[in-house]
């Protein structure tokens, strides 16, 4: 190894991602985009809830959706039928979206950018939590069948998220889901996070969440 010189690199993976996340933030601030990073398990109801959000916001805001999946475009078709501009991003096997992929995805929605853009992240409670994409809001969905113990099992996801929707609340009895137990499990990890029990299917509980969300959007715009 005598022929080799040592170069001090000291680049953290996070710093590399942060560079792109900062560019996303800059783009969003400049273009007046409110970017939501929507994260949840596969099957938690991300797309169904998203359709409710689109319905509730589309009178007031133009809406764009970036569907991130390992493969397929079923979600992009669903949300575009709902009146949002959708782009389907294939992560090429990757289990999460990072800052660079988000920046590239946003470019597909320009130059006339929507006022609200929802990034529907890959269904996964682990990896998306670790990668900041430069969003204005990290919105998480936990669905009732997954169980009220999930904050204990995936603490990072529940720590980084800024709002929790407990979806499929209409099935709480069937699955023995205890909302108070869920809140108690959440408390040591993220005591400030607002929690909204909702049903994407019936629309139950969506109103207070939408009011909260609109307030957040107006604050940033």
């Amino acid at each position: 190894m005598a022929a080799f010189e040592t170069i001090d690199v000291r680049v953290g993976l996070e710093e590399e991602n942060e560079k792109y996340a900062a560019q996303v933030r800059e783009l969003c601030a400049g273009e007046g985009i409110f970017l939501i990073n929507l994260m949840a398990s596969p099957g938690a109801g991300k797309t169904t809830v998203l359709c409710r959000i689109i319905d509730a916001l589309k009178e007031e805001f133009s809406i764009g959706v970036m569907e991130a999946d390992v493969d397929a475009d079923v979600d992009a078709v669903t949300v575009s039928e709902r009146g949002a501009r959708a782009v389907q991003l294939h992560t090429g096997g990757s289990c999460h979206m990072d800052g660079r992929m988000t920046l590239e995805g946003l470019a597909h929605l320009g130059p006339d950018y929507p006022q609200v853009v929802v990034l529907e992240n890959v269904g996964n409670l682990v990896c998306p939590a670790e990668f900041d994409v430069g969003s204005n809001l990290k919105l998480m969905i936990l669905s009732v069948p997954e169980g009220d113990d999930k904050p204990l099992k995936y603490p990072l996801m529940f720590t980084v998220s800024e709002c929790l929707l407990v979806n499929k609340i209409d099935t709480a009895q069937i699955f023995d889901f205890d909302l108070e137990k869920c809140r108690a499990n959440l408390k040591p990890i993220n005591p400030q996070m607002p929690v909204f029990p909702v049903s994407g299917k019936t629309g139950e509980g969506m109103e207070p969440f939408i009011a909260w969300l609109k307030e957040r959007i107006h604050e940033s715009h």
């Binding site: 080799f4 010189e5 040592t6 170069i7 690199v9 000291r10 680049v11 953290g12 993976l13 996070e14």
Partner: peptide
């Protein structure tokens, strides 16, 4: 919690 490239040896 860190993950970083510390250094490289180069020709």
């Amino acid at each position: 919690s860190e993950f970083a490239i510390k250094e490289i040896e180069a020709e």
